[in-house]
Structures are given as structure tokens and as C-alpha cells.
Design a protein around this nucleic acid. Structure first.
Lengths: 122, 122, 122, 122
DNA sequence: GTGGTCTAGACCACC
DNA sequence: GTGGTCTAGACCACC
């Protein structure tokens, strides 16, 4: 967690969770960490984790069963839709941002290619 | 300004300013809006603008002369360096983000190409 | 705090803090006064203290954790470097000032010796 | 002049003037720059220079003769007294400052000796 | 008019 | 309780 950032911690937790889901590190039907456990792991107040979990349930990502824990909803399609949405949003935001910087579309692909190579070797 | 966003208004002001600089809408040596003027334009308190301007000065982007106003530093090179930094950082952040989403590098260029086309026609 | 001085109060707060650090009255890792507490102690507005604390963080002297407080960076070396810098700067400034007054280097050591003695007895 | 400093410009002008006097660059009875002239030289508003000159007259450093200009008071003793005061104050302030930094008197002379040497060679 | 500092006090996020 | 942001508005130094 980034405690300096202005982004609320509970949003950062949700964001992390979404990334894990999209990457396939956690799958529909999986039981996820208890709130207490996660709070200890990421060194955050249990209240903050509670808020994140509550919001994830509202978003339809998880469901909590009394006395059993919190589970990812059993809906493969949901994850796939979700993945597409996040990827597309990321790309669109990026393009908008680069245009705001006055960066020409023509140079963009070249530059990305270059960075991808460096990232592999570096 | 986005008053709903978590992002502090003073940071949004700095961000706007950076974009204008990078796009060449304002140039080294230019006098920029007075604090009071900008405060009226974007409808925030002069103190908030003051804070943004102060941070820009610390960042080395502007110079402030008491009683005269705030100016972009007279240093073409600085602006160019700055432009490169911002573009590069944006691309790197984007790549990192896409990898966090588990998106394969191979598909990335294709996908961006597609989005760039749509953006043009849309 | 000196409310008559031209020196801004927030700078005086920073200066006091630096002196305490250099003198070893506060140490790396220590939690320092909360902003509200210090504001009450020195009878200034919490915003003024906030500004001082913020600048100290930018200077790399402190670290602030939301909801937990402000701490001196855990870096013994940094403090030592800082101490040396302050002492050296003070001496250099002094020498420059004395030369500006046309005071001959030769007399300087004598004069300081004299003053040091008086200070002890006085 | 230092336009960033919080020290009022008119005080900086007085300070400069005092240093010149103490160094002997200007002498009792000398005519000094006209206000307009100085304003142009140091690139400052004539009002600011006027204020500095007014204060210097109040301090008994100068006298203004209508239509003739401003002159340093013809009082050699005054300058000498003044010189002693400034030098002594500088030394005392310095010692106080170093003690505030917790710097031991014993090391002080050594350190100054060292800096004086460096200043000569550098 | 232009920037700089400060107060008083509200409201928020997180502990 | 602890820090962060913001407003409203005063007052100052300098142009």
C-alpha cells in the first residue's frame, strides 16, 4: 500500500484485488484472505480492509458467507468481461493522456516498441 | 478542476500547467496568470492556487518575482527535458500497468493500433 | 516564536527543529509532536505548523504517516551529514560576512577567542 | 538584492550601505547616489529606495540637503563606533548560533582556522 | 496589482 | 487522535 498517495487505502486494496483476479492469481469460487489476515499482511487498520471488502461485495466481485469467509463469485464470464474492461480502459486512458501531452500518434507505436524491448533486457 | 476526485485541486492545477508546457501552449519566459486571476477562473480559493504555484517553483518550472508575477523559467532545454521525462514516464507506467493486468506484450501493439484508429474515426 | 521578525513563523519552526536534531535532542526514528500539539504549544495556527512539517518532509528530514504522526527519518547517517552541513555553512557564512565588513582574517581568531572567554564568564 | 529572501528590500539596501561604510568604500562627508540612480542600478522601485534612505537618515547615518543630494554624516567617530558594533554583533551572533547547534567551543577555533585557509586557496 | 504569510475553522481519510 | 485539503479573508511587502 502507498500511504503517501492520496488514493484512499481501501481503493488501493480493491485495485490490487482486481489485478490479481484479472491475472488469474485468484479464481471464481476461491476463498480469499480473511479481513483480519489481510489487515496484518498489508499493515493496515482492519476497518480499512472491512471497507474494501464491503465495496467489493457491492461491486459484485465477492460474496461473504457467514462464518465461512469471503469468496469470489462463481462467474467465469464476469472475470473475462472485467478483464476486457480494464484493459480497454487502460489503453484508452493512456492514449488520451499522450494526446494531452501533445504527443503525435505516429511516434507512439515506435516509442512503445522501444520501451518494451528495454523492459525485457533491463 | 474536478472537485469530486481524490486528487487534490492544487495537484490538478500543477498537472494542467505541466500539460500546457509540454504541449507548447506556454513557453519559457512567459508570464503566467496571476494567482488571483487563476483562482477566479477555476473558482477556487487563492490559497489553493498559491500552493500549486509554490510547488511549481520548487519543481524548478517557474520563477516568482514578488509584486511582478510568476514566469516560466527561461530555459528551453529544461522544458525539453521535462517533456521527454513526462512522455517516457507515461509510457513506462502504462507498460507496467498492462503487465500487472497480465496483458501479453505481444498483443499490446496490435491493440493500441486498433484503438488509435478508432479514436481517429470516432 | 518571534512574531515581530520578518522571518516567517513556519521557517522559524523548521529552524528550531533542525537545531534540536543537530544537538541530538531528537533522534532518527523518534516521533515528533503532532501538528495540533505543537500549534498549541507555540500558539500558532495548525496550518502554519502543517506547512513547516510539509517542508521538513520535502527536505528529507521527516516522514509523515497519515493518521500516525510525523517521524524523524531513520537514517543516522543523514542526520550526521546534515549536522556537518549546518556547522560548515554557519562557519562559511560567518567568514564571508566578516570579510564583507572588511575585517582582517588575522584578527578574527583572536577576537573569537576573546569572545568565547567572555561568554564563559558572563 | 535578493528578491526571494523574506528580508525587505529596503533593509537589504541599508545593510549594503552599512557594509560599504564599514569597509571604507564610502566615507563621512561623501555624497551618495541619488535615489533615482540607485533604483536603476539595483533594479528596484524608487519607493523602496526612498524608504531605505529615509531610514538611514533616521539612524543618523546620512543627511539630505535639499537640491544637493544625500551625504554621509561628517563624523569619523560614528563610523568607527559603528564598525565595532557590527563586528562584535556578528561574532556574538555567530557564537550563540554555534552553541545552539551544540558545537563545542573547543573545536570552533580549529574549524575556523581550517575554513580561513581553504577560503584563501579556493 | 502581485505574491507571501497567517488565522480560524470546516471537512475528510485513516488509526 | 493524526495528518491533508480547502475556504474565507486579513494584512504585509513590493510594483
Amino acid at each position: 500500500m502507498d500511504f503517501v498517495n492520496h488514493r484512499p487505502i481501501y481503493e488501493q486494496i480493491i485495485e490490487d484485488f482486481k489485478k490479481k483476479l484479472v491475472r488469474g492469481e485468484i479464481k471464481p469460487g476461491d476463498k480469499i484472505c480473511s479481513q483480519r489476515e489481510l489487515a496484518q499482511q498489508v499493515k493496515v487498520n482492519p476497518n480499512t480492509v472491512q471497507r474494501a471488502y464491503r465495496e467489493m461485495e457491492i461491486l459484485g466481485l465477492t460474496e461473504t458467507l457467514r462464518g465461512q469467509g469471503t469468496f469470489i463469485v462463481k462467474d467465469e464470464k464476469m472475470v473475462e468481461t472485467f478483464r476486457k474492461e480494464m484493459v480497454e480502459a487502460a489503453i484508452k486512458d493512456f492514449i488520451v493522456h499522450m494526446r494531452e501531452l501533445g504527443y503525435p500518434d505516429e511516434s507512439l507505436l515506435e516509442q512503445i516498441k522501444k520501451e518494451l524491448m528495454e523492459g525485457k533486457n533491463g
